Amino acid sequence: MASRKHDMFRVALMLKAKGRYGRSIIEGICEYMKSTRIHWDFLLEEDFRSSPASLLEWKGDGVIADFDDPMLTSLLTKVDMPVVGIGGTWQMNSPAIRSLSYVASDNVELVRLAYQHLIDMGLPRFACYSIESTIMNPWAVERARAFRQFVEADGHQAEIFEGIPTHALVWQNILEDLARWLDRLPKPIGIIAVTDSRARQVLQACSIAGYAVPEEVAIIGIDDDPLLRSLSRIAISSVAQGTHQMGRTAAKMLHRQLTGTPLRERHMVVRPEGVNAQASTRHSSIMNTYILRARYFIRQFGSLGIKAAQVAEHVGCSRATLDMHFMRTLGKTLHDELLSFRLERSQHLLSETNLSYSDVAMQSGFTSLQYMYSVYRREMGCTPVEYRKARCAGLL
């Protein structure tokens, strides 16, 4: 194909835009376009969903595609246009991509970061919640294999549970099976889930089985999906893939091919961005059952404005007794614990969202906006407005 430096190229994005992974890669592609001031005319994966084979007849200029889908990979080796595949490191030596451009997410490094984070949090034992092995999820197989290698190299037993695919009709069965697996595991334990969706399932199963997160079961996922985090009562720690960088790299590769510029490297591995540590892995060695139950209840319902008396009722003791346990073990009262939770929750919302201050107060469990302002002035030495401005300016 003749190179065209200034024309509008037609590019097919065979990426699932419904999930965090695909969306973020597409965002990276768009970032590259903006930074280089190029313009492409896109067709999305959904345009080919009814007949993927129509790509063979499509009169386009290039394709960026999800190569974790083996059927799509096989199809795209036959098209007569530049193709950039995106997938996992499991396929780096595959004959299917030998002659194609390929950008890989480093699955082994994703698991290593998750494992190291759990070690840093003081967890003594480890397990992995994966997905039933099929030709459609080789990335999950690679992550589970990496987990086994890391754990066994450190002299631990590698506990791996492959759950069945998620489906509404078997949802309760999935959680019950997962709860039974959790029952068999020694505690405390750190669990690496191969996706954030799987991590959320572990969190729900812990609620069913009555295990405190993170004191008894610490959980970390992969993908750093803010939507799934917002759907969880306890914020889930996660390893962020370098998906934006993957998108930018794939777009750059395709751009060079479309304009006839030689590629320096055909195969690139993009490292993860790092761990986004949240409440689900903030493990404490404190095993006082009164405090465990109280903290777990606060993490689940603290943003709903629960009072200290309700926490004590859940634990099954008087407010005075629970205060005594907190003071003896942690040197603070139950009220202090509730306040710490609400401060942390509000700081997250002020930093990561554009919610109004009234909504931040309500979603953090403060009884009023005025009370939140009072707490910030007393505990932080600033107002919520000043805190948000400082965070946005990178001063905190």
Rank of each mutant, 00 (worst) to 15 (best):
I135H: 06
N107C: 11
I191E: 03
I160G: 07
S364V: 06
H6T: 13
L100S: 08
M33H: 06
R98K: 13
V385H: 11
I189Y: 06
D225K: 00
I219R: 06
A193G: 09
A240L: 07
T289E: 13
L396C: 10
S356C: 06
K5H: 14
S284Y: 01
V375M: 05
R125I: 02
M92A: 14
I236D: 08
P124Y: 00
S232Y: 03
T383V: 01
S197L: 15
Y21S: 00
D359L: 12
P165W: 00
A205P: 04
R184S: 10
G210T: 03
L76V: 01
S368M: 12
H156V: 00
L343G: 02
A277I: 12
K252C: 14
N276A: 10
I189S: 01
H117V: 00
P272L: 11
S74R: 13
I25L: 11
G316P: 07
I64T: 07
F326W: 06
D359Q: 14
R37L: 14
I208L: 15
G247Y: 04
E45D: 15
L203Q: 07
A127F: 10
A114P: 09
A320G: 09
Y376A: 05
R264K: 15
G247E: 08
N137P: 06
G394P: 08
L182G: 00
T261H: 12
P262W: 05
M327Y: 09
Y357L: 15
K18D: 08
K187R: 11
M92S: 13
F341T: 11
R266I: 01
I86M: 14
T89H: 05
Q116M: 07
G87P: 02
I306C: 10
S133H: 11
M287N: 08
E46H: 09
D66P: 04
R233M: 11
V270W: 11
R23W: 03
S356Y: 07
R282A: 05
R388S: 03
S340L: 14
G163V: 13
Q241C: 03
I135D: 10
I298K: 02
G394H: 05
Q157D: 07
Q241N: 01
L44W: 12
L15H: 05
G365N: 07
L118M: 13
M287Y: 03
A104E: 12
L304I: 08
I220L: 14
